[in-house]
Amino acid sequence: MELLGLYHYWVFAVLLMIGFYAVIAKSNLIKKLIGLSIFQSAVFLLYITMGKVDGGTAPIIQAGVENPVFSNPLPQVLILTAIVVGISTTALGLGIVVRIKEEYGSIEESDIQEIDRR
């Protein structure tokens, strides 16, 4: 049971592999980017998971609450930054795909290679 008890990490690993598979196996550039996003999101979950403390709350000192249990806020802060990075990457990637579509008329990797070979 202990293996299943750490199900967060299983989710992380499975998502990571799904994303990675899409990046490698898909020929469509948009699908590659979707895969990349899933790949990154998996890592976000890893960070969030590690910061979570059972029953923990946000680390705000409130009147009347003695010895509260806090979740670790640092991973959440980190991952906020990482999400921004991820969004920028996706946006830039999509921008490049748009440009590729304009120049090549296709977003299939195989087509582009074919055109370049000519």
């Binding site: 990046v23 590659k32 830039l92 990637g93 290679q113 370049d116």
Partner: peptide, 15 residues
């Protein structure tokens, strides 16, 4: 051809 090159770089760099 810079565009597909960058796309590849972006994917691999991000990974």
């Amino acid at each position: 051809r810079a565009l597909p090159a960058v796309f590849k770089y972006l994917i691999m760099g991000t990974i």
